[in-house]
Simulated assay, not measured.
Amino acid sequence: MKAILATAPGSTDVLQLRDIPKPELPSAHHLLVKLAAAGVNPVDTKLRAKPVYFPDKLPAILGCDGAGTVEAVGSAVTRFKVGDQVFFCNGGIGDEPGNYAEYTTLHEDYCAKKPVKSGLQDSAALPLVFITAWESLVERVGLQAGQTVLIHAGAGGVGHVAVQLARHLGARVAVTVSDDHKAALARGYGAEKTINYKTQDFVQETLSWTNGQGADVVFDTVGGETFLRSLPAARVYGKVVSLLSTPLSLADTQLARVRNLSLCYDLMLAPQAMGLHDDRIRQRKILEQAAALVDAGKLTVHVSHRLPMEQAAEAHRMLEAGGTVGKIVLTMG
């Protein structure tokens, strides 16, 4: 089969199209999936540049997100049959091969049937971003109906899905964006207030929007200075959840303490990296929630670019250049 291999740590040039053997089922509980598409995520570019989970296992196939058709099932599989269309977040960070390939294998417990009302390409774009948004907003901070939430990068991959999830939960949503096009997209997904962080102070805009109180929840998908400046944008006794690790100075922690803030973090790939089987099943059940929302017309994923698998390097270049709207997918055949 054809696959894109990360042959060494480095620039996009290390992504090479190769012919490799079609994978065999590693256990009786595994599926063989003929991939239709793979979602491309920022973590893929980071692992290409610095493969921290598998420095001694190169060349490796990247790509956590995938969708395709079940071509074969192990003898103990009960949840799927040949011909089922599925989507999942699996592989691409270490022991299991990723999804920049024509075929992949995965345990049946980590796989969900794709949404009926979504094609395979769109379904491949959804797993990592939806699981991240769900873990952050539902599991970490318990976002409730009537609460206010500020979502950074509201037109980005995680951001535009988080906006829709927050609105589904009944929250009022403000977002930061970098231009009018992204603002229009975020409003279309349900954002009540859009803040252009290049021309506006998002802290002051958030305070104004909440009558001086600050947002009940701030969802940080950016990190760095954005995370630190989010602390005064949250209300006293509010919650800030971040996808990135950011060093906190003594002054930062004192500000968070004085305001009684809860600081939370989410790394949705931790269950896969740490081999936490029960949490992998929990994440699959989150994907089943995503499929239900798509089929109910309450969730959509914005795929801005569909590139053939052979153009994986270009997809990485686009992500690293910044400013990408929604998601990029690689297509197979």
Rank of each mutant, 00 (worst) to 15 (best):
V86N: 01
G224D: 02
L293R: 10
E225R: 06
S245E: 12
L269S: 14
H168L: 02
G157L: 02
Y237H: 14
A67L: 13
A313E: 03
T12E: 14
T148V: 06
L150I: 10
V241W: 09
A234W: 02
P26Y: 11
K114S: 08
A191L: 07
K239M: 04
S262E: 14
L169I: 03
A273P: 03
K81H: 11
G83A: 10
F227V: 00
C64H: 05
G92Y: 07
Y265M: 14
V294L: 06
F88R: 02
T105P: 12
H181Q: 12
V163D: 04
L250Y: 10
K50R: 14
Q283M: 10
G119V: 09
P23M: 09
L276A: 07
L330W: 13
G190M: 03
M274V: 01
S230R: 01
A49C: 03
E320V: 10
Q311H: 14
E71Q: 14
Y100L: 06
W209V: 01
K198T: 05
M318E: 05
Q144N: 11
K34A: 14
L17V: 10
L32A: 07
H160P: 02
S118F: 09
L169V: 05
L330R: 13
A174E: 06
R167E: 05
R18L: 00
L244M: 14
P247Y: 10
P271K: 09
L231I: 10
A312E: 06
G275H: 13
A292V: 10
L207F: 00
V73P: 00
K327V: 06
A291E: 02
A49Y: 07
S75N: 10
Y53E: 00
V173F: 04
S118L: 15
R259Y: 08
G333W: 06
D279T: 04
A174I: 05
V52N: 01
G91D: 09
K117E: 09
N99Y: 08
S136D: 09
H107S: 11
K46A: 12
D109K: 13
A251E: 15
A321S: 15
M309S: 07
I328Y: 04
P55L: 07
G39W: 00
K327I: 06
R280A: 11
E310Q: 15
D295E: 08
K182A: 01
Q283T: 04
K117R: 14
G159A: 08
Q204M: 05
F130R: 03
S118N: 07
A183E: 05
I93V: 12
V86Q: 02
G333H: 15
L244E: 11
V116R: 11
R229F: 00
A321M: 12
V52A: 10
A162P: 04
V258S: 11
A162F: 12
C111P: 06
V329Q: 08
A49R: 15
T221E: 01
K114M: 05
G10W: 09
S75K: 15
